Simulated assay, not measured.
Amino acid sequence: MRPPPVTAAVRVRRAEVSDLDDLVALEEATFDTDRLSRAQYRKHLDSETAQVLVASANHRRFLGTAVVFYRKGTTVARLYSIATKPQARGKGVGSALIEAAEDAARLRGCRALRLEVRKDNGVAIGLYERLGYHRIGEYARYYGDGADALRLEKAL
């Protein structure tokens, strides 16, 4: 049986400990390499230098997550990870998570948000570019499987 389509407005909030099972399950289903572990997620939930966001709709239905890192002494935040459930893709969940990450970074005084994306992930690159991100560099063999990455940035 297929899950019902996402129809309600997407809501983004800060993740809580009760989200750990959903966060880890989505991480394992989405990424083959470079995954965050349960312990890492748990650490990030209480961190001063990280923020874990979750997107939901229809009364806490978990749809996706974004992880943002902050470094002391800089006004550049880093979108470390973003993932959405397959049935939520193409329905505005990724955009909502990115916009919430940008808002969170602005609230912390950041002036830019940076990220890395697999060079072969055309869908994600297209989304980032539509949202105003531009290419600032590349990393060869950046990911655990040897894939190259593009570095993107958006001024906040």
Rank of each mutant, 00 (worst) to 15 (best):
L107P: 01
E129I: 11
E116Y: 10
G146E: 02
R42L: 14
G90E: 10
H59A: 15
D22N: 07
G109D: 00
Y41L: 05
R2V: 10
K154F: 03
L23Y: 02
T65N: 11
H59S: 11
R14V: 15
K43E: 09
S81M: 11
V54P: 02
R38T: 02
A66M: 02
N121T: 08
Y139I: 14
D46V: 14
Q40F: 02
G132C: 10
L26T: 12
R89F: 11
D103W: 01
A149R: 09
R11A: 06
D148Q: 12
R135Q: 13
L53C: 03
V12H: 01
A101Y: 01
V93Y: 07
K43Q: 14
S81C: 13
G137N: 11
A96N: 08
P5Y: 07
Y128M: 10
Y70V: 01
N58C: 13
F62G: 12
S37A: 14
L115H: 12
R114D: 09
R135P: 09
P86I: 05
V6C: 13
L45Y: 01
T74N: 10
M1V: 07
Y143F: 04
L156K: 03
L107V: 03
K72T: 14
D148S: 12
V12T: 06
F69N: 03
L20P: 01
V54T: 11
V54N: 02
Q40I: 04
L36Q: 07
K154N: 06
A83P: 05
R135F: 08
A147H: 15
A104T: 01
R108A: 00
A8W: 02
R78N: 11
R130I: 11
A9V: 06
G137F: 06
Y142M: 09
A25D: 10
R118L: 11
H44G: 10
R118N: 13
A101M: 03
V10A: 06
L20A: 08
A155P: 08
R89Q: 15
E153Q: 14
L79K: 06
A105W: 00
D32N: 12
R89G: 07
I125S: 05
I136L: 05
V54W: 08
A57L: 09
R38W: 02
G109A: 02
E28T: 07
A57N: 06
L36G: 05
E138A: 12
R42G: 15
G64I: 10
E48L: 07
V123G: 14
L152Y: 13
